[in-house]
């Protein structure tokens, strides 16, 4: 060690930020590509933007949007509720229940959704009448399967039951992420298993469950287009019926895409607020809740890693 400091001078120095030349070049390249795309979209007449405008709010399209949203919501509701039941079953001490839950997930994840949709639609070929009664005994009443399984019912069952298999794995990972100490603490203040699940485990599991569930919901929004094969008129079916008649395929696909993107944006916003709601208490900086009676003290002085 020489003890001599390099380039030391008497006058104090000022810090100059780095130039980031590479960053500027990349940004320029991206902007150029975006400009080219926009230019092509504006000048290529085959986009037929006037056709897009004409059909964007056309009644059959709007009905299709509505049906897509209804189907997405119902299928996800079935998927999430049944998924929770199957996840809890999977984690059950009862060997038969847990194996049955495993089998459900294996079966519904292991066959193509398209096959399942067609299967439900053609259920009457397998079971002509659906009856309610004593097992192996007299039946109380029965229904014609064809009357019960409309394209809507087949779509809802097919999508919902399939989704439940995927949701059960998501819920299971969420439940497993909650430490056993939480369950023990809940038990120690006298909570039953159901109270523990509802008040302690699931609210914490939600934090883990929500992001992948958002994924699933957005996936479901577009998966609903598969019901085209059983003739239920959701968004893509409505669009395809129009272009089959007018041959304006590209503009009508654009119309459908615009609506899918719009609904996806809405779902993403909903997901943001849900994540915030269930993230409460997990970030040291999460807002301290106040009530009117007494202002809370700021947490800043107490933050620990």
């Amino acid at each position: 060690m020489s003890g001599v400091l390099t380039d030391q001078q008497a006058a104090p120095a000022v810090v100059v930020p780095s130039r980031h030349t590479g960053r500027w070049i990349t940004a320029g390249a991206v902007l150029l590509i975006v400009a080219l795309l926009l230019y092509s979209m504006a000048t290529n007449t085959r986009f037929e933007w006037h056709v897009v405008g004409k059909y964007l709010f056309a009644k059959p399209i709007l009905m299709g949007v509505l049906n897509t949203m209804i189907l997405t919501v119902l299928a996800m509701v079935i998927g999430i509720l049944l998924g929770i039941v199957i996840a809890v079953g999977r984690l059950s001490d009862n060997l038969i229940v847990s194996k049955a839950a495993w089998f459900y997930a294996w079966f519904f994840r292991g066959t193509p959704l398209l096959v399942q949709l067609l299967f439900w639609f053609f259920l009457s070929a397998l079971v002509p009448r659906i009856a309610l009664g004593v097992p192996f005994g007299p039946e109380l009443f029965s229904l014609d399967t064809n009357a019960l399984i409309t394209p809507f019912m087949a779509a809802m069952l097919g999508l919902g039951l399939n989704e439940a298999a995927y949701m059960s794995e998501i819920v299971r990972s969420g439940i497993s992420s909650v430490t056993p100490g939480q369950t023990e603490a809940a038990k120690s203040i006298g909570m039953t298993r159901l109270q523990t699940m509802r008040r302690v485990v699931l609210p914490q599991a939600m934090r883990i469950i929500i992001p992948p569930t958002g994924n699933e919901t957005i996936g479901m929004l577009k998966q609903t287009s598969l019901v085209l094969v059983i003739g239920y008129s959701e968004l893509l079916t409505s669009a395809s019926l129009i272009y089959a008649r007018t041959y304006q395929t590209i503009p009508l696909l654009i119309v459908a895409a615009i609506w899918y993107l719009f609904i996806t944006a809405l779902l993403s916003i909903a997901q943001y607020f849900l994540e915030k709601r269930y993230g409460r208490g997990f970030s040291p900086l999460s807002a301290i809740r106040t009530d009117k009676a007494e202002p809370a003290t700021p947490a800043v002085t107490e933050i620990r890693p």
Partner: peptide, 10 residues
């Protein structure tokens, strides 16, 4: 500290 979350407490 009534309205603090556990993560905000020592």
């Amino acid at each position: 500290k009534m309205h603090n979350y556990p993560s905000q407490l020592s």
